[in-house]
Design a binder for these strands. Structure first.
Lengths: 239, 239
DNA sequence: CGCCTCATTGATCGTTGTCAAGCCGGGTGG
DNA sequence: CCACCCGGCTTGACAACGATCAATGAGGCG
């Protein structure tokens, strides 16, 4: 279950690889600053814990520091649809901007560390600080582009290449600093979640993974992945 | 081909049904105002005309006043993927926020009237005008939510219901003021574009349309659509 | 009138979903 | 320490749906 930490910007930020793009790396008001209350709390979640649910009031944004968070809905027919994954450096909840409520569930898919922010105060602060304002606009643009491009891949690539693309993206988002060689890592979500995100069944995912393994493009062992041939993989799945 | 009009906010705005949500309906700087140059030009396009192309510099946003604009990419394999339609009141180009270039093509799908804006000046103006700032945030949130929900439908509904959902959305976005009875209108794009957006072939679209016609849920005649049973249609495709 | 594009319809093939069974690994308790 | 159990993952067989290929039909426009 979720546990509380003392409210503060995590000390670990200094050695975080996503610092450059992260809200916590910006010139931010903190408890001692001129906008006390923007940063609210650091929280810890286990896989399966809920950050917020659909149709609850929208007051906070969440910065992921460690782990991963999925955003999902349940359709009228009862199907679970995962619309995205938030990895370290990402912000959860942006889609509720200008609305009073969240319109999806946010659920941790791995043990995660997260910092909660007050939206209203963040936006207020933007009026005073052009740098922060520009950063927010930049992040929103980034998110819009990601959603748009994801859509393109979802529609334009055959299933196996879409899967490959997913793991390439995952790797690039989790290790933006990594050298070209270090092409492996830990999966911060279950295969079931990936299948729900790619809109395929776990069976189809499994079958395609064996295909990709045979082609020596993607190796999955338990919760670890490896990309033995990144160059070729990128070539296949680029826009 | 595209033709120029004298630069000004269109006079027709006063009788536009989307005025409440439209940028042009906001308290906007104009040529006589304190931020001359934000509104650049009113433009006219025919179906097939290009507003901007992928990888060209991002300087302007476009407000659609009449007609429709599709946003699309061509994959490495040569497939055309339509990622969205912009209808009257919508803004084209938001996805490039925080980037130097557009990352998709924007193409008119019908005879359209469009107003071009300077992005930099618009964002500058936001710093001074909290109302406008709030409006921009609201529109961005709206766009994010739409993309997210569209994704949910794309993944969670069977093909025929997805098609029905598309026409329901289209109708609600084109005639937000319309009474429940007036459940018909003109298609501002070709079926081919719709198929590309829904990620199906024109053949599959056609087949499903006959199914929906038999079920008395959706009637298509040439470029006109009608929804004889909106209630039931909404029931089927709601979240 | 005839061309040209787009839309429809039909037949066939391939991929994915579905259902069912077996497998593997982690965790629990003896 | 080992046996068991359980959830998630994998694999197989079959059915269903959409893509593909091909042919026909319907408007729009010169």
């Amino acid at each position: 279950m979720m546990t509380f930490q003392k409210p503060s910007i995590p000390a670990d930020c200094v050695r975080c690889s996503r610092r450059a793009d992260c809200l916590l790396g910006q010139h931010l008001p903190d408890e001692q600053g001129d906008c006390a209350g923007v940063v609210q709390r650091q929280l810890r979640y286990d896989a399966g814990d809920v950050l917020f649910r659909r149709a609850t009031t929208f007051r906070s944004l969440f910065v992921v520091c460690e782990g991963a968070v999925k955003t999902q809905r349940v359709t009228a027919a009862g199907d679970l649809v995962v619309t995205g994954f938030c990895l370290p450096g990402d912000i959860v909840g942006f889609e509720a901007l200008g609305s009073a409520e969240h319109d999806y569930d946010a659920v941790a898919t791995a043990a995660s560390r997260v910092v909660r922010f007050d939206v209203a105060r963040l936006l207020e602060t933007c009026s005073d600080k052009p740098t922060l304002y520009g950063w927010v606009i930049g992040r929103i643009g980034h998110l819009l582009r990601r959603k748009d491009v994801d859509q393109t891949w979802a529609k334009g690539l055959p299933t196996d290449e879409r899967i490959l693309r997913f793991f390439l993206d995952l790797h690039e988002r989790m290790r933006p600093d990594a050298a070209e060689r270090s092409i492996e890592g830990e999966l911060p979500m279950r295969k079931q979640d990936i299948a729900h995100y790619l809109n395929i069944t776990p069976e189809t995912l499994s079958r395609n993974l064996t295909v990709l393994r045979r082609k020596q493009l993607l190796l999955i062992k338990r919760s670890r992945y490896a990309l033995p041939n990144v160059e070729q993989a990128r070539l296949i799945t680029q826009l």
